[in-house]
């Protein structure tokens, strides 16, 4: 399909436009010229520069990097678990992170500690799943998936308990965290570094991913050392999800919908699918977050609700288009 070759260049063009629009939009509206001047003037160039450099830029960059991380984790887990419905949180990474972050919040911790709690919770959940889901036996995607789903249910119960026991004034912050909240995003540099590292590591395996996507036996017969590859992919995907969830809370749908969207456009080759997913995930989350900030301004909406509201109709439309094309 020749049209699939156009997808990546188009994404590459759309991404900066989207970032600029995200910086410009908000309760203090800035024109494209204002944004350009503020960016050129540097961090200490008046009120507009303050808004751009202190508030909008970190948030938009964080949104982009988190969207990229979630989409990347989605691609990797869909190959790893041989399940098109796999998403970054399916193995309980977000559940562990939620328990960590909400515990920290319940104890009255600030933003930085809560984010740290989320990251620690995510990593603890990865370690727990590896210990329980693999045990001593060989890699088994099915058992790993089931164990992850069961653990997620357990985390869900803990989250409910934490919410029930939380003091009233902290509840709103907790609920927003659970639905994804980029207003707390403060480390765009850190998430970008994670994203770049993870994308490079995943792209290095792109050919092996192409083969593994056809099944373990097929990959083995073509010369892939399947089990070590699966372990690497699992750790990589978990790291992506953990970094995203620590920065922005649990944002659903990006990791599920973006890889599907691109595959439905005919992108199968992982050398192109991986970077395209990162770009598309970033664009998608910047758009969703911009809408979350502006739709009911000055009120902010939970970005997780908007990713689902944007994502559901898009994917349904693509599925029906594809069915029509196949007929």
């Amino acid at each position: 399909m020749q049209s699939s070759r156009l997808v990546f260049p188009i994404l590459l063009l759309v991404a900066p436009v989207c970032l600029l629009a995200g910086i410009g939009a908000g309760s203090a509206g800035l024109s494209l010229a204002d944004v350009g001047n503020a960016l050129l003037a540097g961090p200490s160039g008046g009120i507009a520069a303050d808004i751009v450099w202190q508030l909008r830029l970190p948030r938009v960059l964080s949104a982009f990097a988190c969207g990229g991380l979630l989409a990347l984790a989605g691609v990797l887990l869909q190959v790893l678990l041989r399940n098109p419905l796999a998403e970054p949180y399916i193995l309980g990474v977000s559940g562990g992170a939620s328990v960590g972050a909400l515990s920290a919040m319940a104890l009255g911790a600030g933003v930085a500690t809560a984010n740290l709690g989320a990251f620690a919770g995510a990593l603890a959940s990865v370690a727990l799943l590896l210990a329980l889901g693999l045990g001593a036996g060989p890699w088994n995607a099915y058992r790993l998936l089931l164990t992850g789903v069961v653990l997620s249910a357990g985390y869900g119960a803990l989250v409910s308990l934490l919410l029930a026991l939380a003091p009233g004034e902290g509840l709103r912050g907790m609920l927003f965290w659970l639905m994804g909240d980029l207003s707390r995003a403060e480390h765009p540099g850190l998430v970008f570094a994670t994203l770049a590292t993870a994308l490079a590591a995943a792209s290095w395996q792109a050919r092996a991913l192409d083969v593994l996507a056809l099944g373990e036996l097929k990959a083995k017969s073509l010369g892939v050392a399947v089990n070590p590859l699966q372990a690497r992919l699992y750790l990589l995907a978990s790291l992506c999800a953990a970094a995203a969830v620590a920065e922005a809370g649990t944002i659903g749908f990006v990791g599920l919908i973006v890889p599907h969207f691109l595959r439905l456009l005919g992108l199968a080759d992982h050398r192109r699918l991986l970077p395209a997913s990162v770009l598309a995930g970033g664009i998608f989350l910047v758009l969703a977050d911009t809408l979350a900030r502006t739709l009911a301004a000055p009120q902010q909406l939970p970005v997780g609700a908007l990713t689902a509201l944007l994502g559901v109709p898009t994917l349904l439309f693509l599925l029906s288009e594809r069915r029509r094309a196949a007929r």
């Binding site: 792109a206 083969v211 097929k218 073509l222 010369g223």
Partner: peptide, 30 residues
């Protein structure tokens, strides 16, 4: 070389891309 009875998963790419997967053992890195 092995021809398995079935592929475990659907393939999303073109016929050429599928056949090139067969070249995997002969290709290196990226």
């Amino acid at each position: 070389g092995v021809l398995l009875q079935d592929d475990a998963q659907p393939f999303w790419g073109t016929v050429m891309e599928y056949v090139l997967l067969g070249r995997y053992p002969h290709r290196h890195g990226l």
